[in-house]
C-alpha cells in the first residue's frame, strides 16, 4: 500500500510548478508596473517603487494560487490517476489537503521573504514592538484557519454534488447543478458573513483558543463527512 507521506510528496511536487509560476508572474508584473510608473513620471526610480508595486500583486497572486490549488485538489477526487492508487481514502484525503497547505505555505514564505527584503532595503531594519507580533500571529492563524476551512468546505460541496448527480438521470444533471450552486452560494455567503464578523471584532474581545477549538470541531466534522463520501459514493469520472 502507498503511504500518506509518499502521496503528499508526489502531490506537492506535481503542484509546485503552479506555485513557482505564480511567484514568477507576480515578480514580472511588479517589475513592469514599476517601470511603467517610472516612465509615467509619477516617481523617482528607486527600490521603493518596487515595494509599492509588489503589494497588490502579492495579494492577487495569493488569491489566484488559492483558487488554482483548490481546483487541483478537487480534480484528485474524481480522476482515476489518483483514485486508482492503492491508498485508503482517509490517507488520500490527508495527503491531498496537506499538500495543498504546503504549497500555499511555500508561496507565502517566498513572497514574505521578497517583501521583507524590499521592506528592509526601503525602510531599513526596525523591529516593531513585541505586542504587535502577538496580533500578527493571531491574524495569520485566523487567515490560515479560514483557508483550511474554505478548502475543506469546497471539497464538501464538490463531493456532495458528485454524489447527488450520480443518482440523477443524465438529463436532469444540469438543472441539479444550478440548484446545488444556488444552495452553495447562499450557505457560503452566510458563513463568510459570520467569518467577517469575527474579523471585525476588536482584537481584545475574542479568544483565540476558543476560535481554534470551534474551528477544529468544524474541520473534523467536514473532513469526516468528506472521507465518508469518498468511501461510499464518489467515483471517478
Amino acid at each position: 500500500m502507498t503511504n500518506t507521506w509518499t502521496m503528499t510528496k508526489v502531490l506537492i511536487r506535481q503542484r509546485i510548478q503552479t506555485v513557482i509560476n505564480t511567484v514568477i508572474v507576480t515578480i514580472v508584473a511588479t517589475i513592469i508596473t514599476a517601470i511603467l510608473m517610472y516612465f509615467g513620471g509619477s516617481a523617482r526610480f528607486s527600490i521603493e517603487l518596487f515595494y509599492y508595486a509588489f503589494q497588490p500583486y502579492l495579494i492577487i497572486g495569493g488569491l489566484y494560487l488559492f483558487i488554482r490549488l483548490a481546483i487541483r485538489q478537487e480534480h484528485t477526487w474524481v480522476d482515476n490517476y489518483y483514485r486508482s492508487v492503492p491508498i485508503t481514502n482517509l490517507k488520500l484525503y490527508m495527503a491531498n489537503l496537506f499538500s495543498t497547505i504546503c504549497n500555499f505555505v511555500i508561496y507565502c514564505l517566498v513572497q514574505s521573504l521578497i517583501f521583507a527584503i524590499l521592506e528592509v532595503t526601503t525602510h531599513g531594519i526596525h523591529w516593531p514592538e513585541t505586542s504587535i507580533w502577538m496580533d500578527v500571529a493571531e491574524v495569520v492563524t485566523i487567515l490560515g484557519l479560514t483557508c483550511l476551512f474554505i478548502w475543506t468546505f469546497v471539497s464538501l460541496v464538490h463531493l456532495l454534488s458528485v454524489t447527488i448527480m450520480a443518482f440523477l438521470p443524465e438529463t436532469q444533471i444540469r438543472l441539479a447543478q444550478w440548484a446545488i450552486y444556488l444552495v452553495v452560494i447562499i450557505t457560503a455567503s452566510y458563513l463568510f458573513n459570520q467569518l467577517w464578523q469575527l474579523f471585525l471584532m476588536p482584537f481584545s474581545r475574542y479568544n483565540i483558543a476558543a476560535i481554534f477549538g470551534v474551528f477544529l470541531v468544524i474541520f473534523a466534522l467536514i473532513s469526516s463527512l468528506n472521507v465518508y463520501l469518498l468511501d461510499k459514493w464518489v467515483e471517478t469520472k
Binding site: 500500500m1 506535481q14 480534480h75 474524481v78 480522476d79 482515476n80 490517476y81 489518483y82 486508482s84 492508487v85 492503492p86 491508498i87 485508503t88 471517478t236 469520472k237
Partner: peptide, 17 residues
C-alpha cells in the same frame, strides 16, 4: 484498497497532467 493493489488498470492514466 486491496483490489487497487492487486490490479493494474490502463485507465489509471485518466486525469494526468
Amino acid at each position: 484498497v486491496d483490489r487497487k493493489q492487486l490490479s493494474s488498470f490502463s485507465e489509471s492514466l485518466k486525469g494526468v497532467n
